[in-house]
Structures are given as structure tokens and as C-alpha cells.
Design a binder for these strands. Sequence first.
DNA 1: TTCAAGATTTCCT
DNA 2: GGAAATCTTGAAA
Length: 210
Amino acid sequence: LHRPFFARDARSLAIDLIGRRLHSSTQGVNTAGVIVETEAYLGVIDRAAHTFGGRRTPRNASMWGPPGHAYVYFTYGLHHCVNIVAGSPGEPVAVLIRALEPVEGLDVMRRRRSVRLRRAGSLADTLLCSGPARLCEALGIDRSLDGVDLCGQGPLWIEAGGVDRPCAGSLRRGPRVGVGYAGAWAQEPLRFAASGNPHVSRPPPLQPLA
DNA sequence: TTCAAGATTTCCT
DNA sequence: GGAAATCTTGAAA
């Protein structure tokens, strides 16, 4: 997809990313999945965002850059999470990709995930990409992809064309995960998911989009 | 200079 | 249900 698609407010982008295919080409292998869960992070005003209050560090630098780029951060000392930068240049807002329904390169995903999940034989498909750090591991995404352009010929992109939305019209929303420290912002319904999709990261306290 | 907590996941009890 | 894995950041000392 092209730049204009990403150059808008994060909440709107988070909703329209559901049903789109995220592709990666890393380590010489292609993988892809349908985005089934996202969260919007609204920047300097959003206490849950890494850029709350105007915070600008080496880690979150790409969130301050132009839209349509990746913001990949490392957390808890061992996990990666990938965001898609939204808004306009200098407006540090982004959409966290929380879960995918795997559609391409499942064998590769299984292998990558099995490094940590030793019981390769019992690795269900719903464990491949059902969480922000899980999908990064499955797609081979790490800090080396931080800041890459999703609109060019890079290792990450969103497929143009059809919205593969098996849950069209049944999008759900609810509070974001793991942001209890964010006060009133923790309650904001900025998490979105395809209703009933088994690859969504956790049982949703989610409501219809309305 | 130290310390605690985090946009998480896995493994063990 | 709870702890461990251990990088990054901001606030306390």
C-alpha cells in the first residue's frame, strides 16, 4: 500500500488495517498473515504511548518519522513488537500489530517459533502469530527492521488490493492490553479485532464497534 | 549511580 | 496462578 493510506489518524488506520495482509521477506524467506488485531497509540497526549509527553529517545525515534514506516521496539529484555507509523511527519502516532492469521510460509513460522517452543510437534497454528511478540518471531522481525519503509521494496509491506476480511461488519473494540498504568487512557477502546477469529491474542472484553 | 517497571511469553507448580 | 527471561527508560538517590 502507498503512503497516503498510512498518513492519517492512528485510530482510523488501526481499524482499516484489520483484514489486510502483512508480508515479510527476511532471511531470504517470505511469510505473510492477515491482520486480525491492532491497537492505536495516539502520541504525546496518550499516556500509554511510548511518545507520551513528547518523549523522544533512540528507541522510539522512528515513531517520530514519516508515516508508512515500521517502528520495531524491544521489550521485557527479550521480545520484539512491530508498529506501523501513522499520522504526519513529526506526529508520533502508530498502530501496534497484535495478531495475524498466518497465510503464507507457515512451515517457516513454525520453525522460527519452535526455537523457543521446543515441542515443535504440538505447535498449533494459533500459537504462531497470536500476540505482538509471537508474530514478530514468526515473521523474522527484529530491531534491524526498525524504521524500514513499508511503501518501498523493503522487507516489510502491506499488500495492496483486496481486504481479506472474513469478519467484515463484525469488528470489535475494547481497552488496550497491558496499559493499566495509563490512568484514564487505559480505558479508551483503542484495541480492535476481528470478531471470533481464533488468532486474536486473548479472549476479548470487546464490544461491537457500533 | 541505582532501581523499578514495562504496548510479553513461556514454563513450572 | 506465578516467576523468569533481562533490554530500555525515567525517576529516585
